[in-house]
């Protein structure tokens, strides 16, 4: 269906082909250029792969054999991955594969569970997130989070957005601007600008979730972790949130956990596929990272057969 070439898609190719010869010295770098059969073609191909890597912004998170336990139960085993800035990274996988647990270990939300503990390394811009003297409170100020179910405070819309800035003791005189800017960024301003003093609990589910996003970005964190942010929303509200994520990508590094493979395919640049490993003896279910790659490769050309089976709907 989507393979059907629309005239819009066909046009640039047709227009580009005749210009190949003339524009050659400029090196447009399109695939048509490479097909002209020069030695250059292989060199160009290599350069493109390098460019692709170079174009990726710096590494935000680097997990090194990261494991998460709840008491004796190991929820996540030996995850090693890199998450780059200004990209949307999706975690997909079947239920119980530890996606959410992994995500919550990134901003130390798991610290709130007394029995939770972490092994292995997790570095944020090179700094050990679980290092000695690291304050989870400070970690969470840099790494914001949006939850599965919209969880606005039972306060006014204004006070919800102003919560984070007030925690950071920002000047009162700036709050109005911060609130307007955050709500605008979250595509909610026009809907709520006349009722900022009303309770956030009177909003629809989709509005509440956008409010939670506005609240999370009000203090301009570096990273936004989103734990199945659309699972409680209808399809239209879901699309709005996805549009919003694509817009926020310019400024934020976003990591999203999703059950919805289409969503991962639609919004994310990179996708990590996790699965459940069931111990033969104890029956314990532990999450493992199968592979992480560019989203288009995960969905069209996965290197691991388990990924292929999952994304093609053969299990999970």
């Amino acid at each position: 269906m989507n393979a059907d070439p629309t005239p819009e898609h066909a046009l640039p190719d047709a227009a580009a082909a005749p210009t190949v010869g003339s524009s050659m010295p400029g090196g447009s770098g399109s695939s048509e250029t490479a097909s002209t059969g020069f030695d250059l073609s292989t060199a160009l191909g290599g350069a493109r792969a390098d460019d692709e890597e170079r174009a990726r912004a710096e590494v935000v998170f680097e997990a090194d054999r990261l494991s998460v336990f709840y008491g004796d139960f190991q929820a996540v085993r030996d995850v090693s991955m890199q998450i780059h800035a200004k990209e949307i990274t999706a975690f997909i996988g079947p239920s119980g594969c530890g996606k959410t647990t992994l995500l919550r270990s990134f901003n130390r939300m798991n610290d709130l569970i007394a029995s939770a503990r972490v092994e292995g390394g997790l570095r944020y811009h090179g700094e050990d997130v679980y290092g000695e003297g690291v304050s989870p409170v400070i970690v969470r100020r840099k790494i914001g989070m949006v939850f599965q179910k919209p969880n606005p405070f039972p306060k006014s819309i204004y006070d919800n957005v102003a919560y984070g800035p007030r925690v950071l003791k920002w000047k009162k005189s700036d709050l109005d601007d911060v609130v307007e800017e955050s709500l605008t960024r979250a595509a909610l301003w026009d809907e709520v600008k006349d009722r900022l003093d009303q309770s956030a609990l009177g909003m629809s589910g989709g509005q509440q979730q956008r409010l939670c996003i506005a609240r999370a970005i009000a203090t301009k964190p570096d990273v936004l972790l989103m734990d199945e942010p659309c699972s409680a929303l209808d399809p239209i509200a879901t699309l709005r949130i996805e549009d919003l994520m694509r817009e926020l990508k310019d400024e934020y590094s976003i990591v999203i956990v999703t059950h919805n493979m289409q969503q991962a395919a639609r919004v994310s640049d990179y996708t990590a596929f996790l699965t459940v490993d069931i111990d033969d003896e104890s029956g314990q279910r532990t999450g493992e990272l199968v592979e992480m790659d560019r989203t288009d490769r995960i969905f069209t050309n996965a290197s691991d057969p388990r990924t292929e089976a999952y994304v093609s709907g053969r299990f999970g």
């Binding site: 914001g144 939850f147 969880n151 405070f153 919560y163 984070g164 999370a216």
Partner: peptide
């Protein structure tokens, strides 16, 4: 609900302030 506490913790609030600014008002 625990989700309200989590919302406040995720905004980098400390335990005492979560209790006073979120839990008690709620």
């Amino acid at each position: 609900p625990q989700s309200l506490r989590e919302a406040a913790y995720a905004l980098g609030d400390s335990k005492a302030r979560v209790a006073i600014r979120v839990v008690v008002p709620a």
